[in-house]
């Protein structure tokens, strides 16, 4: 079987899953992104939503408009024309982070665990480029790929009851940003004053799948200025 072959399967009576690869890698990611872009550009009547993920794109539809077979045909023909997706220019979003201290209580642990100084952890974390593979788990929550394994650290043995929104954490080889106040077991190394999710903004999420994220260290004073400034979305 051709590795790039499109596999389509139903998810219940109102959704269809397009599998565009088997592994979480950039090639598959770009194909998912290209198909999502095609759907966004040409939404069709009866489509009620879509969810791009690591290797799949799920399309939700109204069974009054389509049968599964009809949806399969439609997606099949759409997928034939998407290309590799690499030509789609990613949006680069810089996220200011106040590392350590009250906002990053686990920075010393991550440093010690990796036999680094806290400053080195910050430098490594802030020098990376991260790909938003998908949005899920919570509104606006990005699954980021590309963290250096030199700062990997296991989850906390028991999760915190409440992690404030904006907290930047590490769990295993992943880094992430909490988009809502929620319980969580990630090692917290800092916090951003940016809101990842705001309903008074369109789109409501700061990040979308396919974006590139860079972290920029800021001081506590800068963090407070950001917050006082209305916590506006910032991107370039």
């Amino acid at each position: 079987m051709n590795e790039n072959q499109l596999v389509l399967r139903p998810m219940g009576d109102s959704a269809i899953v397009a599998e565009l690869g088997q592994k979480m890698d950039q090639e598959t990611h770009f194909r998912v992104k290209a198909l999502a872009a095609a759907l966004k550009k040409n939404p069709f009547r009866g489509m009620t939503g879509y969810v791009p993920a690591f290797t799949t794109l799920t399309v939700f539809y109204d069974p009054l408009s389509f049968s599964f077979t009809e949806m399969s045909r439609r997606l099949q023909s759409l997928a034939e024309d998407i290309g590799t997706g690499e030509e789609l220019q990613p949006k680069v979003v810089e996220i200011p982070v106040c590392y350590g201290g009250e906002f990053g209580p686990d920075l010393p642990f991550v440093a010690e665990y990796n036999k680094l100084s806290p400053e080195e952890v910050i430098r490594i974390h802030a020098s990376g480029e991260y790909l938003v593979y998908m949005i899920g788990f919570a509104p606006g929550f990005p699954y980021l790929g590309g963290m250096s394994e030199r700062i990997a650290a296991p989850r906390k043995p028991s999760p915190r009851v409440k992690v404030p929104a904006g907290s930047v954490g590490i769990a295993g080889k992943q880094t992430g940003i909490y988009s809502l106040d929620s319980p969580g077991g990630w090692q917290l190394i800092g916090r951003t004053p940016l809101s990842l999710f705001r309903v008074d903004r369109n789109p409501p999420g700061l990040l979308e799948m396919g974006d590139i994220v860079r972290f920029r260290p800021i001081s506590r004073a800068e963090y407070e200025r950001w917050e006082a400034g209305g916590n506006h979305a910032y991107q370039r």
């Binding site: 999502a36 009620t48 939503g49 879509y50 969810v51 791009p52 939700f60 949005i135 899920g136 788990f137 919570a138 509104p139 606006g140 929550f141 988009s179 999710f197 789109p203 409501p204 999420g205 979308e208 799948m209």
Partner: peptide
């Protein structure tokens, strides 16, 4: 809230 699943927003 249909149409926002791609942003991680539950229906």
């Amino acid at each position: 809230r249909t149409g926002w699943r791609q942003a991680g927003i539950p229906v």
